[in-house]
Amino acid sequence: MSRAALLVLADGRFPAGGHAHSGGAEPAVKAGRIRDAQDLAAFCRGRLHTAGLTAAALAAAAALGLDPLRLDEAADARTPSPALRATARRLGRQMMRAARASWPSPELEALAAARPRGAHQPVVLGLAARSAGLGPEDAAHCVAYETVSGPATAVVRLLSLNPFDATAVLARLAPEMDEVARRAAEAARGGFGELPAASAPLLDITAEAHAAWPVRLFAS
């Protein structure tokens, strides 16, 4: 594997559109569920072990070469919120554009043709990792990291939280991100029947109301 390719894919500046999304942090701030760095840590930890694990396993499975269309269907079944399904597909479409430019491959072309409006983002990311010569753990690490880095970055803007405190939250979660990525890749090796489906009720619930806000800082 190429460690440098992993850095390119995981970089927040990789043009896949993730910066416009708070990962549910914006409604959580509005509802008073995130007021400080401690709340942010609990939010990120919960998101990592639920939606993060589930998405990381989908990405790892795509990186391993499991059928991306079946994975896309599995992602739909794991996303009861239509707002979050729409977000995942929009981000998947942007990830696809960046991935096809960066690491073109027949598998990416085939998925882009089969899902012109976008497949679920973790599935596209996993396939991008595969096209870049990366493995399932790499794809899972990317997803685990972006699961928590998105909310942490958003909360710096939403709460004027000290960026050093937000980064410290991420650094302290590093061992748990490693563990989630390891479990995700292990599950992916077990095939479709082993894929986790861990979910977070508040993320699913608040995504719908947030999508209907007339004015918001983040798309989701």
Partner: peptide, 22 residues
């Protein structure tokens, strides 16, 4: 539909935080 929920002292961290149960 496929959904897994985990709560309580033996569940992974963050289950009572602002993303899961609040």
């Amino acid at each position: 539909l496929d959904q897994e929920l985990g709560y309580g002292p033996g569940a992974p961290g963050g289950w009572d935080g602002g993303a899961v149960l609040g």
